[in-house]
């Protein structure tokens, strides 16, 4: 039981984080909160990928053998591919948030509020 939990709980925690982020995006009235939800959602995905890249008894993916002696055993390192993917994903996330914030500022200047309900009322008039 404990073993099962210890092997699975990161996935469950990540599932919770995903849902919390999604809730922030869908259920919050404040546009800023929606952006925060987006950020949480994205980092949950990042954690998911990295969490899956673990390897028993492995170390960080730096090959000290390159300029030294001997050959590296792939089993000694955690899987580096998800790391690369997540680097990309983080940057993409920041880019999206940057754009979202510029939208927010622009909307605030136009409407004077960031409350979604007020905004919708304003547009419908």
């Amino acid at each position: 039981m404990i073993e099962e939990i210890s092997a699975r709980f990161p996935y469950w925690a990540i599932a919770v984080l995903l849902v919390v982020g999604l809730y922030g995006m869908m259920g919050k009235r404040s546009l800023v909160k929606q952006v925060i939800g987006l950020s949480i959602f994205q980092s949950a995905i990042i954690l998911f990928f990295i969490s899956g890249s673990l390897l028993e008894g492995a170390t960080i993916p730096i090959l000290y053998s390159v300029h030294g002696e001997g050959h590296a055993n792939p089993d000694d390192f955690v899987n580096p591919l998800p790391h690369v993917l997540m680097l990309t994903a983080i940057v993409v996330g920041v880019a999206i948030i940057g754009v979202a914030l510029s939208f927010l500022v622009s909307i605030y200047r136009e409407f004077g509020t960031l409350d979604e309900r007020e905004l919708l009322d304003d547009v419908r008039e």
Binding site: V91, V94, G98, L101, S102, V105, R109
Partner: peptide, 17 residues
């Protein structure tokens, strides 16, 4: 690319006030 764009975004977002 990254450094310039990040600074650019901040300047525009925060500086526009």
């Amino acid at each position: 690319g990254v450094a310039a764009v990040l600074v650019l975004i901040y300047d525009l977002v925060a500086g526009s006030s």
